[in-house]
């Protein structure tokens, strides 16, 4: 049993290696995760020093004569180290992304599987709700939900999770629709397996591949949307070092010349999204049997 499992993983790794952009994406994601995990070791300063060191406010980083010692990317309007806040921010953003996608997956897989497997009125009901949710722009819907639930990072995660549920449900439904017609499901019925057993043991494991791919891609948009909610002041509240919130608190200083306070969090968002997208695309190429060469 072990031997064959390993060769399957080996095959995955081998195929991943040939996909340059996927490797690049994976590298970025790994770096991001490492930053998030070890933020308290690698960050030079506290992300939220107290009392605030306001005398360092908007001081530039290493590129300037006027730099402050120990803050390589400069300080923000509150005199906090931008590099440290970005590193800690990775923790916040990744958590937000994973939690939001996790919620979307749990809800989406549940409803999508029910919808696809049972069909009929269950399917019709769930899919009409999904259609209604699709009619709203994602961010707008998230804003509505946050407004109802109240502000805060946790609420933002829930909101984004709910907003992504319909997409997830559609994806899993379409693969369940395909898988449930397979002969081995018929065979399972013929040997007397219950519906629950068939769904959990046979339908889900076979329909999960696209969910992994879209989950990765969704992680990128979740981070982005979370940053957007933070930017609008609906997500993480100060002084939480969240990239979107950092951006919104500092963009007005760009005109006065302090470009670094807004630029670096923006670059962090950019890179994490690029990394996750490349990885997701790569995984799709690898896992999609139709693209196998």
């Amino acid at each position: 049993m072990k031997r064959t499992r390993e060769t399957k993983t080996h095959e995955l790794v081998r195929r991943l290696k040939y996909n340059k952009s996927a490797v690049f994406g994976l590298a970025i994601v790994v770096i991001l995760i490492l930053c998030a995990i070890f933020a308290n070791y690698i960050a030079p300063n506290s992300p939220t020093p107290s009392p605030p060191e306001l005398f360092k406010a908007l001081k530039p980083g290493f590129w300037s004569e006027d730099k402050v010692e120990g803050m390589p990317l400069g300080a923000d309007a509150m005199g906090r180290c931008i590099l440290s806040r970005i590193l800690y921010g990775a923790r916040v953003s990744l958590t937000a992304g994973f939690v939001a996608v996790g919620i979307a997956m749990i809800l989406g897989i549940t409803f999508g599987t029910l919808s696809g497997y049972y069909g009929g009125w269950v399917d019709a009901l769930i899919m009409r709700i999904v259609d209604i949710m699709f009619a709203f722009p994602a961010l707008l819907l998230a804003i509505v939900i946050v407004t109802v639930l109240g502000q805060g990072l946790d609420k933002a995660m829930i909101a984004i999770g709910i907003v992504y549920t319909p997409q997830m449900a559609r994806i899993i439904r379409s693969s369940v629709l395909y898988i449930k017609e397979m002969e081995y499901i018929e065979v399972q019925k013929a040997i007397g397996s219950s519906d629950a057993r068939i769904i959990f043991r046979h339908v889900l494991p076979n329909s999960i591949a696209p969910v992994i791919v879209y989950g990765t891609l969704m992680l990128a948009s979740a981070i982005l949307d979370c940053a957007a909610l933070g930017f609008l002041g609906l997500g993480a509240q100060p002084p939480t070092p969240e990239w979107g919130a950092m951006l919104s608190k500092s963009y007005s200083y760009i005109v006065s010349g302090a470009w670094w306070a807004a630029t670096f969090p923006g670059i962090a968002i950019l890179f994490s999204v690029i990394g996750l997208n490349l990885l997701g695309d790569g995984l799709r190429d690898i896992l999609d049997p139709r693209l196998k060469t």
């Binding site: 397979m182 002969e183 081995y184 018929e186 065979v187 399972q188 013929a190 046979h202 076979n206």
Partner: peptide, 10 residues
């Protein structure tokens, strides 16, 4: 069943 190729869960 008829189709042994697809009758087992992959």
């Amino acid at each position: 069943f008829q189709e042994p190729m697809t009758s087992l869960d992959p």
